[in-house]
Simulated scan of single mutants.
Amino acid sequence: MPRLIAVVGPTATGKSALGLALARHLGGEIVNADAMALYRGLDVGTAKPTPAERAEVPHHLLDVLDVTETASVAAYQRDARAAVEALLAAGRTPVLVGGSGLYVQSVVDDLEFPGTDPVLRAELETELAAHGPGALHARLAAVDPAAADVVLPGNGRRIVRALEVIALTGRPFPARLPAGVVPRYDAVLVGVDRPTDELDARVARRVARMFAAGIVDETRALEAAGLRDGLTASQALGYRQILAGGPMSTAAADTVRATRRFVRRQRSWFRRDTRVHWLDAAAPDLLGRALALSS
Rank of each mutant, 00 (worst) to 15 (best):
residue 3 R to H: 10
residue 6 A to N: 07
residue 8 V to E: 04
residue 12 A to F: 11
residue 16 S to I: 00
residue 27 G to C: 04
residue 28 G to M: 05
residue 33 A to S: 03
residue 46 T to W: 02
residue 50 T to H: 08
residue 51 P to T: 11
residue 58 P to Y: 12
residue 61 L to G: 04
residue 62 L to H: 03
residue 63 D to T: 08
residue 74 A to P: 15
residue 78 R to F: 04
residue 78 R to W: 07
residue 86 A to D: 13
residue 87 L to N: 09
residue 92 R to E: 00
residue 96 L to E: 00
residue 101 G to C: 02
residue 106 S to T: 04
residue 106 S to L: 04
residue 108 V to R: 12
residue 109 D to H: 15
residue 111 L to V: 11
residue 115 G to D: 12
residue 116 T to Y: 14
residue 118 P to Q: 02
residue 120 L to N: 08
residue 135 A to Q: 15
residue 141 A to T: 03
residue 147 A to G: 04
residue 150 V to D: 11
residue 152 L to R: 15
residue 163 L to T: 02
residue 163 L to S: 01
residue 165 V to F: 06
residue 167 A to K: 01
residue 169 T to W: 08
residue 171 R to A: 06
residue 174 P to D: 04
residue 178 P to E: 08
residue 180 G to P: 00
residue 188 V to R: 14
residue 193 D to W: 04
residue 195 P to M: 01
residue 198 E to D: 12
residue 206 R to M: 11
residue 208 A to H: 01
residue 209 R to N: 05
residue 216 V to I: 14
residue 226 G to S: 10
residue 229 D to L: 14
residue 229 D to M: 13
residue 247 P to F: 02
residue 248 M to E: 15
residue 249 S to F: 06
residue 259 T to E: 14
residue 271 R to N: 11
residue 279 L to R: 10
residue 280 D to N: 12
residue 284 P to T: 05
residue 284 P to F: 06
residue 285 D to M: 06
residue 285 D to S: 09
residue 295 S to V: 13
